[in-house]
Write a protein that binds this DNA or RNA. Structure first.
Lengths: 243, 243, 243, 243
DNA sequence: GATGAATGAGTGTTCATTCAT
DNA sequence: AATGAATGAACACTCATTCAT
């Protein structure tokens, strides 16, 4: 999936879906091969990460396709050709953007699942985790929302890991919903898969309008959503409503 | 907003946001100016609509930018240059795709609002309307989801009507939520605007995974969502959950 | 092997190697599909052929790789992008250059073989045919000499027909040499395949230094070579020569 | 002709064409300037020669232009920038490849000419010399065959020595052919220059298909060619052949 | 209404080369 | 001697758009 140049971090999610998290919680372990030079340690990796961050912002703002490598290079103050010293291709950059996010997200979901708890507690925690990524991974999430279809349509299997990661996440959520239904905590007349999708969509699409510094921070957002999600919008006051 | 050639139908939503629905119920009135050919009446308009439909499918499948005018022309069995007999530009086409959808949607929301009813009934109906557009306007909704950012970033004010339409829709929803809270039907501790956004997102993002012919049709989807939305996922069985 | 655009003539040699010559002696049959417009008949094909000719000259003079599409376009008085209205790629152009030559050559060899005759007559005729292509196909032969290795190394099977054509030609020559040896006309102590290669190389490499208008025309060249080839450089006067 | 760095060995052929062989038999005299490091004597030169050899192989296999400096560096296990400690430019490398071959070839031709003998003996020996270089100088000969045109077309006079060497070699051959004709050993009705070219081409082009380990070694090849060249392909059995 | 040739600006990418470290 | 980041010019190719026919 990765060529020489980006052997560092991109697309590691594919491995993550298999079982044990790769480099889980150790993003710092990247590119150990270049640590020969003890001084200015990690500068190569830092430069690379910086470029990825710049690119991610542009991808989020303008879309992957509408962002040119020249724009990325301009932002970094270098020439477009110089980007290719760090990355094989534009795709490699977005690959790194997305896989970094997915690796983090899945790692945190797994941690939540390991903290034994009743399904409602686990699910609330997963909702909170989702919203909590909105700020640190805003760009990546935006790209995933907007360019998912396009990236998936690219030839080759480079972005197949997107699907694999999606499937793994779905499995984790649906399992908890079903467990909650089995334990009588969640209403049995809702479809678990459908419910997961609605929750998922609600969280991620918030990236489109959420701006830090507004009335609610992401933690507030999460609580708001947990409230509506579990207890509903309605009070006890029932009225007739058209069926 | 529109240049000569597409003076017929695109971007009509802008007018719709003003008040009375423009040409409501008179989609056939489009492009009266082209009746030069008395026989085969409306064939020009039909041809145009057909092209828009083909383009919409491609835009939805591959994204607006990734779709070339040549692909649209290929699909129609003509050469790319010939498309410019019907449309000024590629943007004109997507403009027509989106505005057709928004005109329909806003018109139906207005009808629902005119049918007096308690807020829960109105809101349920609006949810149902939203889901009911998923099939007939699948392509347009997909484009709006995926290419919104890009289209908005284009120079000029051509797509400003997207924002205006969005604002008008938001006003309609938020009004009903507030009314429901005022009448004690909806819990008062939720933020109306935030709640609207979550409802909105949940409906539209479903276009990404909804496929006709699955377990649930859009009506079923709507009921499912109305259930969770109003009454919550939880049963009465409360358990402690991590705050 | 060919994409839409160059469905006309390129790479037809592949078929030729199978058996009956395709469009043999009917280069005019190209692009019949575009003859709908009876007036300005074949102008599309002519334009295309003209561009191929210009490109062939440049390929021959500077090498395939060293020739840029801009140079070809400049030569034709158009912009480089406009070339892609006629050809899929730079490779398509050189493909057409080479396959046109090979189709012609193989067709003429076949005609010679059909004219029954003793092997010496047939072989002389084949030598003459070879030399006679030097002028009309000078550019193509030059490209084949210089860029053969590179074109063969290109990914995909696009230029596999070069090998197939080479093999077919070798078969024709070797057959005649063997027949001549069997009939006692040619010395039996030479290797047929080796001898073919030496004849072949001698003919084609002449393209490097042959310039029309010199002392000898290609017919003279052919006779000169036939003389040396069959009867040797030496007179009867034998002297000792270091073994 | 050469810039600082490769003042050692490249392009020495130019001098050779003047008269006395330059440093003939003293290849070890190269790069005396680098003897700064008294220990590991000649290691710099050896490293350099190794790099030239690696590059020559790549040039031969893929062509000069299609070979990137990065590929050469990869092959040597260093980075492309590091190559510039040894060579001024990519051209300097190929310069060294070709001039080394030409120096060797011309030196051996001269030795043959000094060994007095009748023209047939000398010519046979020159043929043998040519074929004998096929193995040790395979890469250089291949490059010369394929990239001659391109290298000659480069701006500047850097590769003018190729022409000068070619001319010198031609003079040597033609002289012997003419001498043979004058002495009645060779048929008088062949053109000496033309004959030389045919012999030359036949020898060098063999590099394209000759592979060591086949049926014939280069010595066998030489004898085969000498046989056909002097005595012809035909036996005494004459038949009519189309004029 | 449609063709087909052309435009012109732009795309991602390549690559020989430079140079501070 | 070698690294690795960067350059800068060039490359093949794309594509929305124009326009004479």
């Amino acid at each position: 999936m990765n060529t020489r140049k980006n052997s560092g971090g991109a697309s590691a999610v594919a491995g993550a879906t298999g079982g044990a998290p790769p480099r889980s919680g150790s993003g710092a372990a990247k590119r150990q091969g270049t640590t020969r030079r003890t001084s200015s340690s990690g500068s190569a990796s830092e430069r690379r990460d910086h470029l990825v961050k710049l690119a991610a912002e542009l991808f989020a703002r303008k879309g992957f396709q509408a962002t040119t490598v020249r724009q990325i290079a301009d932002e970094a103050g270098i020439l477009s050709g110089s980007l290719y010293h760090h990355f094989d291709s534009k795709e490699t950059i977005v690959d790194e953007v997305l896989s970094t996010f997915l690796t983090d997200l899945i790692g945190r979901y797994k941690t939540a699942l390991e903290q034994e708890g009743d399904p409602r507690a686990v699910l609330s925690e997963m909702v909170r985790i989702g919203f909590s990524t909105l700020e640190p991974h805003r760009a990546a999430i935006t790209v995933m929302q907007n360019d998912w279809n396009y990236l998936r349509s690219l030839p080759g299997d480079r972005f197949d890991y997107l699907i694999r990661a999606e499937d793994e996440v779905e499995r984790m959520w649906v399992e908890q919903i079903k467990r909650g239904q089995a334990e009588g905590l969640f209403r049995a007349d809702v479809d678990p898969k459908l419910t997961y999708r609605m929750i998922r969509d609600t969280i991620w699409v918030a990236v489109r309008w959420f701006r830090p510094g507004g009335r609610l921070n992401t933690a507030g957002l999460a609580e708001h959503y947990v409230t509506v999600l579990f207890d509903g919008l309605a009070t006890g006051e029932r009225t007739s409503h058209k069926a």
